[in-house]
Nucleic acid binder design. Structure first.
Lengths: 335, 335
DNA sequence: TCAGAAGCGCGAAACGTTTCGCGCTCGGGG
DNA sequence: CCCCGAGCGCGAAACGTTTCGCGCTTCTGA
């Protein structure tokens, strides 16, 4: 029950050093190998990773920090990160900071204490100094979902701008010209900014004027999407299509349209973001922009593991993955 | 950058032992206290939890193991467990075993190596021996979502049987007598068994004969729910209402009903399980049985922390939480 | 004034591992 | 036959903490 390297040494008559060598793949005489294998099985010995971590200064632990545990997007990405890191022998400690950036700093210090080998997080400009500190301490850092200007660092992002642009262009292709945007209202949020830019890009490319009444910002939630959608409808700008840049906001948009008795897509066409499991359950099925959650997690894991292995600090790698626009019934009726 | 207790000792001129004492809340002379506080801030010292863990034989780490990372129910419960444990100063290491019970044993051994103080998992009968081993090693164990007969152990569950019964009774109250059940098909799955029992209870209490054609088992997934629902419809037993015992299966049921052109609730009334965010986005809104995810997480955390504190092994505590039946449009039209 | 108690600080060992470098053995080649 | 090198095993120190018990100081009270 909880035997140590010492017990193995005692039982085999070998020294602690030799046992350790064997455990770590070193060569030992065949007869000793047999002895050791038997003894390890007998006492069901397992390396004490805590002791090893202390000695080697590597814990095989990666910290992941997210704003909160409510975000489906981040939770799924975390699942995939955990899954991928596990294959490399790493485990994950997950923290949230309930949207409080001061608390994020605390969590980072908490992870310092845990001696994690690396940290993965979606950065915000406010804590740029802390991120630099992480790197200075020799802890590998990977940014999730967005880069920040102030800190050059590995990052895994998606082509938000192109994604929004393509979604709007699909509306245009179906003859829509009065297109609404239900966007996330978080100051400085990279993804919101990029998706807006994509929306504007598409308009500019089509030579279409942008009507600000058709753009609404609101809290990233079902209620936020609901309110934003109503405000667009109430602006009476003749909107015939809406792009919602977040799954919850897309749900809010559906609720708002239902509440107003507007049919999808006949009265208003709709495309959402990040709606995964249930997009096809709606009637008509919901068109969506999907981010490659699996790849995002894998890439985050790859980036951090690669950096961990490296001795020399390599220059920051920013990986941008492609989103996919999946068109279904909710946006497929032409005007 | 990564200073230790030794650095503090050197800078303050005090001994290592005194620094340690201070860190752990021991009394020191006021002048020394000031010195220590200053020095700790100066060098921004943080206790090395790895070293502490080695010495104290407590890592403040709890392992959580789930069958896979796809289950929304478990992922949400994990979020809440993490959140609650964090308040007690514990962190969480999450593993999955992709439905492979042999792999679950490996993950448990992996957690042995990490020297976790406790483990939380949904048990299965196959690995009863391993669970006993966990307890024998002095690692606290809490069962999630279900107990098993072979191992007496703390557990957090919900009133699955009553939940299903109440859902069926709400159908009965609306005049339905031909009620379908779309159930999860996993051998030995406690929750599936209990929910079936509740379904049967309600029938028996109402003096209603059970028609086996109205009960279908299938994979716990959207497709499974879809297939199961179609099979019930195709049995031509005159079903007018359906209870789906899982969120994905409820989605599958909706898809199946849409596919057949059946209206909810006019043609078929529907109640789902565990549909949280989007239940009110459907039109009509979906009636559901909800499990108290927050409380489940908190209670799991409480149970394990309580057991961790205890010196003496107390007798197993099984906490059963109440589910809530929320009736909405999808089940509210009488026949 | 002095004995004793209370409070504080310190040295040293210990937790379980890795790692360094030395010394031994054994075999092969000159 | 002897020397040298390769290969293996071992002792000891180290990672950063906690903890034990002893010894010193200081204060209280008779």
């Amino acid at each position: 029950m909880g035997s140590t390297i010492k017990d193995i040494a005692k039982q085999t008559g070998l020294s602690i050093a030799t046992v350790s060598k064997f455990i770590n793949g070193g060569n030992v005489l065949p007869e000793n190998r047999a002895l050791l294998e038997k003894s390890i099985k007998d006492l069901d010995f397992e390396v004490n990773q805590v002791a090893r971590g202390l000695k080697k200064n590597r814990t095989m632990l990666i910290g992941v920090i997210v704003p909160n545990f409510e975000s489906k997007f981040f939770m799924r990405v975390i699942s995939n990160i955990e899954n991928s890191l596990m294959r490399y022998g790493y485990s994950t400690i997950v923290c949230d900071y309930r949207g409080d950036y001061k608390l994020e700093v605390e969590k980072i210090h908490f992870l310092y204490g845990k001696k994690v080998d690396g940290i993965i997080l979606p950065p915000n400009e406010d804590n740029a100094k802390t991120y630099k500190d992480i790197i200075k301490r020799g802890i590998s850092l990977v940014f999730l979902d967005r880069p920040i200007d102030a800190v050059p660092c590995d990052a895994i992002i998606v082509d938000n701008r192109a994604a929004a642009r393509k979604a709007v262009e699909s509306f245009l292709a179906n003859g829509h010209t009065k297109i609404g945007l239900v966007n996330m209202n978080e100051p400085g949020l990279y993804t919101a900014h990029e998706r807006l830019a994509g929306y504007l890009d598409a308009h500019e490319a089509a030579g279409l004027e942008v009507d600000r009444r058709r753009i609404a910002f609101a809290a990233t939630s079902v209620d936020g999407g609901y309110d934003a959608t109503l405000s667009i409808l109430d602006a009476n700008s003749g909107v015939t299509a809406i792009l919602a840049t977040n799954d919850d906001m897309a749900f809010g948009a559906i609720k708002a349209l239902n509440a107003r008795g507007l049919r999808i897509p006949d009265d208003i066409a709709l495309i959402g973001f990040d709606v995964y499991d249930v997009a096809t359950v709606f009637n008509p099925e919901l068109s969506v922009v999907v981010q490659p959650l699996g790849e995002i997690g894998e890439t985050a894991a790859d980036l951090i593991v690669k950096r961990l292995g490296q001795e020399r600090p390599l220059s920051p790698r920013v990986v941008e993955l492609k989103t996919e626009l999946i068109l279904r019934g909710s946006s497929e009726k032409s005007v």
